[in-house]
Amino acid sequence: MAVDRLESLLRGAFPDAGELRVEDRTGGGDHFQVIVTSPRFDGLPLIDQHRLVNEALAEPLRDGTIHELRIKTRGTT
């Protein structure tokens, strides 16, 4: 399932994530909402936080698994 694959990729990139959720937004298996809270984001501007998520999901983004991605990130401070 795509959701599990995305979750494991994000777990790998953010092992110390507090909240880490992947939702299939439309039920169609290719529009996702990801929510990640991690100390890795602390002090980073929003765009760099999202870059880290995009990098973690580079492959499913490249191979078309993800058609549309919505990202919500938060630091811990």
Partner: peptide
């Protein structure tokens, strides 16, 4: 841009981000 998704927004020549940001 090093940004993999669309849309991408640039202001004054700089990437501000995608739709979420």
């Amino acid at each position: 841009s090093g940004w993999p998704t669309i849309p991408q927004v640039f202001v004054g020549g700089e990437l501000v981000g995608g739709a979420d940001i």
